[in-house]
Simulated scan of single mutants.
Amino acid sequence: MEKILEQLLKDAPDAILVADHEGLIRFWNLGAERIFGHNAAYALGQSLDLIIPENLRGRHWDGYRRVMATGETKYKTGLLTSPGVSKDGSKVSLEFSIVLLRDENGEMYGFASVMRDVTDRWHRDKALREKLAACESELGRRSG
């Protein structure tokens, strides 16, 4: 069964990564390579800044340090959304879940995350929102 789980983690199409207490990447699967463009040999040992847009890093690290210190987060369940950044600098829209990880002594080790690239859907939704706003504006002009 261990080999099966290893294969699942390594080959999943979604990005699966583990970061330690300091925010250094300790596991990076093929899905993460596909989504972010960095191979595991490069990503392992790198800071999560590798995939976090620069303008969001301050807020991210404030929250990360708080969670590592307290072992608590309001994001234990549910799907989160956030932009990420790929190797070529392009933005990636992500949906993801996180799992807090503890060592054998119950101390915070870091976290695992499963991330899905939803960039195409985000662009389609944005286009629909823009069309809806244009239609509502036109209706407002006609009825006003």
Results as ranks from 00 to 15, higher is better:
residue 7 Q to Y: 12
residue 4 I to L: 14
residue 92 V to M: 05
residue 141 R to L: 15
residue 85 V to D: 04
residue 102 R to G: 00
residue 98 I to D: 02
residue 12 A to L: 14
residue 140 G to K: 03
residue 71 G to F: 04
residue 112 A to P: 01
residue 10 K to D: 12
residue 4 I to R: 12
residue 6 E to G: 06
residue 113 S to E: 10
residue 7 Q to E: 11
residue 42 Y to I: 11
residue 79 L to V: 14
residue 125 D to P: 07
residue 68 M to Q: 13
residue 69 A to M: 13
residue 59 R to H: 13
residue 91 K to W: 01
residue 52 I to Y: 02
residue 115 M to I: 15
residue 113 S to C: 07
residue 79 L to T: 10
residue 139 L to M: 10
residue 99 V to C: 08
residue 128 L to W: 12
residue 93 S to F: 11
residue 24 L to S: 05
residue 58 G to P: 11
residue 24 L to R: 11
residue 22 E to D: 15
residue 125 D to T: 12
residue 133 A to R: 03
residue 105 N to I: 00
residue 133 A to P: 00
residue 108 M to C: 10
residue 61 W to P: 10
residue 84 G to P: 01
residue 105 N to F: 00
residue 88 D to K: 02
residue 27 F to G: 01
residue 71 G to R: 07
residue 91 K to N: 01
residue 23 G to Q: 08
residue 92 V to F: 09
residue 50 L to I: 13
residue 10 K to R: 14
residue 117 D to S: 05
residue 114 V to E: 03
residue 98 I to L: 14
residue 49 D to F: 02
residue 38 H to P: 04
residue 15 A to N: 10
residue 100 L to M: 06
residue 47 S to K: 06
residue 17 L to D: 09
residue 119 T to I: 12
residue 82 S to I: 01
residue 106 G to L: 06
residue 82 S to A: 14
residue 7 Q to G: 09
residue 41 A to C: 08
residue 107 E to Q: 01
residue 132 L to V: 14
residue 129 R to Q: 14
residue 46 Q to T: 01
residue 35 I to S: 08
residue 44 L to F: 04
residue 104 E to S: 12
residue 8 L to R: 03
residue 137 S to C: 00
residue 108 M to T: 08
residue 45 G to R: 02
residue 131 K to P: 05
residue 62 D to H: 13
residue 51 I to N: 01
residue 128 L to C: 08
residue 46 Q to I: 01
residue 13 P to S: 14
residue 61 W to A: 12
residue 53 P to K: 08
residue 47 S to A: 11
residue 54 E to A: 15
residue 37 G to Y: 06
residue 103 D to W: 00
residue 44 L to C: 09
residue 46 Q to H: 03
residue 92 V to S: 03
residue 144 G to A: 08
residue 50 L to W: 05
residue 20 D to N: 13
residue 124 R to G: 02
residue 116 R to I: 02
residue 142 R to V: 11
residue 12 A to Y: 12
residue 88 D to C: 03
residue 101 L to I: 09
residue 58 G to M: 14
residue 37 G to C: 07
residue 83 P to G: 08
residue 16 I to K: 06
residue 119 T to N: 08
residue 88 D to H: 03
residue 23 G to V: 07
residue 21 H to C: 03
residue 128 L to S: 12
residue 6 E to K: 10
residue 77 T to V: 03
residue 48 L to N: 08
residue 19 A to N: 09
residue 57 R to D: 02
residue 97 S to G: 13
residue 120 D to P: 07
residue 84 G to C: 05
residue 140 G to A: 06
residue 57 R to G: 05
residue 116 R to F: 00
residue 45 G to E: 04
residue 7 Q to F: 10
residue 3 K to V: 06
residue 17 L to Q: 08
residue 58 G to V: 15
residue 110 G to K: 02
residue 18 V to F: 03
residue 53 P to V: 12
residue 29 N to I: 11
residue 65 R to C: 15
residue 94 L to Y: 00
residue 35 I to E: 11
residue 42 Y to Q: 09
residue 2 E to F: 03
residue 101 L to N: 02
residue 18 V to L: 08
residue 123 H to G: 02
residue 79 L to A: 01
residue 20 D to E: 06
residue 124 R to T: 14
residue 9 L to R: 01
residue 70 T to V: 11
residue 116 R to E: 05
residue 82 S to W: 01
residue 7 Q to S: 15
residue 47 S to V: 06
residue 143 S to V: 10
residue 70 T to R: 13
residue 1 M to H: 11
residue 114 V to R: 10
residue 140 G to P: 00
residue 21 H to F: 12
residue 44 L to Q: 07
